[in-house]
Amino acid sequence: MKTIILGLLLTVAAPLVSAEYSRTYIESHPLNTVSVNGIEMAYRIVGEEPDSPKVVIIMGLGGSNLVWGDTLVKGLEEGGYELLMFDNRDVGGSTRFDDWGQPTLWLQLIKQKIGLPVNAPYTLDDMAADTVALMDELGYEDAHIIGTSMGGMIAQVVAAQYPQRTRSLVSIMSSTGARHLPWPTRKAEGNLRELAVGDAAAERDAMMRARGFFPDSMPRQLMAIFKSGDRSEDVASIQASTLVLHGVDDTLVPPPHGVHTAELIVGSEFVLLEDMGHNMPDNVMPELIARMRGHMDKVEAAADAGGQ
């Protein structure tokens, strides 16, 4: 069981860390730090323009803001949107929780499976509150909230608990955490089992760090997901216009997770993308950007029409 969880953690980043990507454009924007919600949060603003509609993008498990890559960031900015991107708590330039230590993964998984409380230094609710506190600090009245994987879960919490701050929601390769949904496939666990020890593990760890991931934080953030449990009731309360994107080939968070999310949110749009697993590959990126921009453009057009 410990091997399964280690494989899961590695698989989260595997499709991304091995890919060539650029982050030069992202890094050309200063990384600032501000105190919010009892922690320090590191953030960047791209395409800053007072009159532009705002977008908040939330990265997944163990990933810093750099993991988004230049292609997606430029693509959204070119649509006329101002982007707020940041490091979740426990990652990158934001407050780290290394002093809390590492959870005993196999024990916490057993507890989660039988419904006992899981030990975690924070929850998805805390991370959603961080997001909204940062918006407050920066004067964002509302924003289109986009999240991928764990970031999609955080985005769902923001949309459910802070509806007045959510202009729209885009949930990418994410989940409601419902207990009936399928676990990662054996393929997702087995692909990297041989990398769990020795030199291969060290090499993969170095690749992850170079790509903008923080492996030491990933087990703690996984516990935050487990501790938050089934969020179906919250997700079903979401009123914001919602786009749910998922990959046909996602073996880590299989497509039924995205289907369930869309089924719960009244009026949401669900798009299942070919050639996409638990990643955002180069060949699919143009469609991802077009889908997101099209979704947000519709919301903006409706808001403009309503204001006339």
Rank of each mutant, 00 (worst) to 15 (best):
K2W: 05
K2R: 06
G7L: 14
G7W: 09
V17F: 15
V17Y: 09
V17G: 09
A19W: 02
E20F: 04
R23M: 13
T24H: 11
I26S: 03
E27Q: 08
S28M: 09
S28V: 05
S28C: 06
L31K: 13
L31G: 15
S35M: 10
S35D: 09
G38H: 05
I39C: 08
R44H: 07
D51H: 06
D51P: 00
K54L: 14
G62E: 06
S64V: 07
W68C: 03
W68I: 01
G69C: 13
G69Y: 10
L72Q: 00
V73F: 01
K74H: 04
E78G: 13
E78L: 11
E78K: 09
Y81E: 00
Y81A: 06
L83A: 08
N88Y: 08
D90R: 05
G92M: 02
T95H: 07
R96L: 14
F97P: 02
D98W: 02
D99W: 04
D99S: 13
L107E: 14
L109Y: 05
K111T: 15
I114Y: 13
G115M: 08
G115C: 10
L116N: 09
V118R: 00
V118L: 10
V118K: 01
A120I: 05
M127F: 04
M127N: 05
A128T: 11
D130F: 13
T131R: 01
L134A: 09
D136K: 07
Y140N: 08
Y140P: 07
D142W: 06
A143W: 03
H144A: 11
G147W: 00
I154S: 03
I154D: 01
A155M: 04
Q156S: 12
A159S: 04
A160F: 08
Q161A: 13
R167A: 10
S168W: 03
V170S: 13
V170H: 04
S171K: 02
S171H: 06
I172W: 05
M173N: 12
S174H: 00
W183D: 12
T185Q: 03
K187E: 15
A188D: 05
L195Y: 11
V197L: 11
A200G: 07
A202K: 08
A202N: 09
E203Y: 15
R204M: 15
A206R: 10
A206H: 11
M208R: 09
R211Y: 12
G212T: 11
F213S: 03
M218D: 14
M218H: 13
P219A: 04
R220W: 05
Q221Y: 12
I225F: 14
F226I: 11
S232G: 15
S232M: 14
E233Q: 14
E233T: 15
A236N: 04
S237C: 12
A240Q: 01
A240H: 03
S241A: 10
L243H: 00
V244Q: 00
V244H: 02
G247L: 03
D249C: 03
V253D: 00
V253I: 14
P254C: 07
P255V: 12
H257W: 10
G258W: 03
V259D: 10
A262W: 04
E263Q: 15
V266K: 15
S268W: 12
L272V: 12
L273G: 08
M276Y: 01
G277W: 00
N279E: 15
D282W: 01
V284E: 07
M285V: 10
P286M: 09
E287N: 11
L288W: 02
R291Y: 06
R291S: 14
G294L: 06
E300T: 10
Q308A: 13
